[in-house]
Design a protein around this nucleic acid. Structure first.
Lengths: 95, 95
DNA sequence: TAGAAATGTCGGCGCTCGATGACATTCGAG
DNA sequence: CTCGAATGTCATCGAGCGCCGACATTTCTA
């Protein structure tokens, strides 16, 4: 499962928590946050703290893998060749 | 690369940013944050906002994969069988 | 059908994020 | 060596997080 948005991550957390038969209260205590926090995160709260999120994932034995592979359809940053030229240009432009 | 701590994630971001030959200012503008934010996150800031982190990863074409596979050495949650019994017990105990 | 458990919502509060702008330090090109 | 770019540091400030405690709603079991 690939995670791109806070909502997706929230869904992952919720599914996994339910699979482990944990209720929000126990889960919250286990990772050291309030139940309120669990609720909001599971609902896709975008401004949750990174550290707490990682703790939550860890508590549910979810591994996060960061890879640099390309999703062809999303071709946004695809320079690949003349980076030097771009840099030089940026240097001149004095952004 | 597996990410377990904010520091690890910061390192991933920094490495990737440098590989793409971006400086902090340009990077910050690209994802809509301040340069200060980039600095702190790359240093492992634990309380950064989830949404901004995801934007940063996206801007660098880094995909996050959440998997439920077991890291054998961390065998914490390994019930697998009589969850029902545990639940029943917990019900009785009225923790 | 109760009745409890789980989940979601509300108001209030302390604390720190993230932004801004200026300055210091490091590093590389010339 | 000199100049500038890149990175790191500092102080300030408004806004929102995460917490608490109570209550509302949904979802189960007995």
């Amino acid at each position: 499962m690939f995670v791109r948005t806070p909502a997706e991550l929230g869904a992952v957390l919720r599914d996994r928590r339910k699979k482990l038969k944990l209720d929000q209260s126990t889960f919250a205590k286990r990772i050291g946050v309030s139940r309120q926090w669990v609720i909001e995160v599971e609902h896709g709260h975008a401004r949750a703290e990174l550290g707490l999120i990682l703790r939550a994932l860890d508590a549910l034995d979810i591994r996060l893998d960061a890879s640099t592979e390309q999703t062809p359809a999303r071709g946004v940053t695809r320079p690949a060749v003349d980076i030097n030229a771009i840099v030089a240009k940026a240097r001149k432009k004095k952004a």
